[in-house]
Design a protein around this nucleic acid. Structure first.
Lengths: 258, 258
DNA sequence: AAGTGTGAAAGCATTCACAGCG
DNA sequence: CGCTGTGAATGCTTTCACACTT
């Protein structure tokens, strides 16, 4: 999804970016979104001491089918050996390089509430190409507290931190009402990639990428399918309370959830 | 993305499910994934006291373009008025009903570590169609602790809880190594929708939907694009350390990140 | 043999552009 | 007149199937 070149980042849409040239490094967005999954699968295989794997094995470990995997890898180059498969370490390195995580990216986390704490304590950052450069919060009551080795700093210091550490990626873990203002300030400070945990659509200028993680949205998508499964049962075994209870015509004010 | 009918849930893939019949409620998966976003936008408009909106306005609030919004809504029915727009409350109700969140779904959260705590304290559940039925953890040291009104219970009680509360949706917030075993037990207990926060691919039987939320994957996707932006600058202003530092030929053991 | 890499085909999703309705 | 709803066109993604390499 990444919304470079668009004012709003849509959710999970594999919107293609304005490709400079199809031949020149044109990796499809859908493929880019899977490369991290392949990378993790390779790390798992590597940890198990497996030196070589077929597209079938790697695909299984990554939860995709092998045709898709091979097509995806083909955009990176020819890193396999016909008749044999892939060298786990070699492919792992190539994908890490393609993604750009052979070195660590410094990241700032803004909003150190419940979620921010959890993120700050997450141990997987360093092994996956990231390093927390700073924890920021606008609430003076939280500043100074140490969370997972790092002190919470005043949000005001964002410009300084971006300049000093070369931070390009920011994580927003604030309440929804604060998110847009925080986002604007991050962008003004020079941050060009944002991971948004606040349940809000962020508006950003062209050239800034936004991805979002939204618990409620994920649950609601599950609920939709769950309802459908239940509905199938209902048709076999009817007699349960069914559709359209309240909310008669338009303009009524029935309590719809949101 | 939901992987009903597939053994593995792929990440962010809009994999279509085995449609029973195209005419009979065939809402595309990409549309389903956006309905929650529209719902949230409508709630925001509603809170602002706005009674009516055009597709253009709603699309802006939801971060998509109006053609896509109208096409999406057309799968639900004709809930707008030509020349006028949409009644905010009415459309809100219709979308909530379509998603299935006019009543609350009971949800269990498994693994009450840092992230589990954050999820348990998240206040948005009830207003968005969900209710935490129980918090579970396998660690006796955590059991009994009260988090956001609810006590942490032994994971062993899952079957009992599913039966008693009719829980269909489970959230996995355990460490990665525990996730598959927890998942298997949830499925055995009767849960058919899973939201997975553990950085692992889960294998589930047909009929069980899995969605995943993965911080590292999101950050790595951002890193990929960020690297590309930096690369463009490099070509204008060269002289920076560039590609392919270590990792010469295959079989080498350079330290690739994962 | 075994398994990768890849054109070509099929399937989805998005966008266009406008008929049709209030 | 304005704006929705929607076929048709376009573009992307996935799948197929097999030539080709080791």
């Amino acid at each position: 999804m990444t919304s470079r070149g668009k004012r709003f980042g849509a959710p999970h849409d594999g919107a293609s970016r304005p490709t400079a040239d199809k031949s020149e490094r044109g990796i499809p967005e859908a493929t880019v979104a899977r490369l991290p999954v392949y990378l993790r699968a390779l790390v798992t295989l590597s940890d198990r001491g497996i030196a070589t794997c077929s597209s079938e094995e790697l695909a299984t470990a990554a939860g995709v089918n092998s045709a898709k995997l091979r097509k995806d890898l083909s955009y990176l180059g020819s890193y396999g050996t016909r008749g044999v498969g892939y060298d786990v370490e070699y492919l792992r390195y190539q994908i890490a390089r393609e993604i750009g995580v052979t070195q660590d990216w410094p990241v700032v986390i803004v909003g150190i509430g419940n979620l921010g704490h959890a993120l700050a304590n997450y141990s997987g950052f360093s092994s996956r190409g990231f390093r927390i450069a700073a924890l920021l919060d606008a609430d003076p009551g939280r500043q100074g507290e140490v969370v997972g080795d790092l002190p919470i700093l005043a949000f005001d210091r964002i410009e300084e931190l971006v300049a000093e550490h070369g931070v390009a990626i920011g994580v927003i873990a604030t309440p929804a009402p604060a998110a847009q203002a925080v986002c604007d300030r991050l962008v003004a400070a020079g941050i060009t990639s944002i991971l948004n945990f606040a349940p809000t659509v962020l508006a950003v200028p062209e050239g800034v990428d936004v991805r979002k993680v939204d618990l409620s949205i994920e649950l609601q998508i599950l609920a939709y399918h769950e309802q459908r499964k239940a509905g199938l049962l209902d048709r076999i075994d009817p007699g349960l309370p069914d559709t359209t209870p309240a909310m008669p015509g338009k303009t009524t004010t029935a309590k719809a959830v949101g």
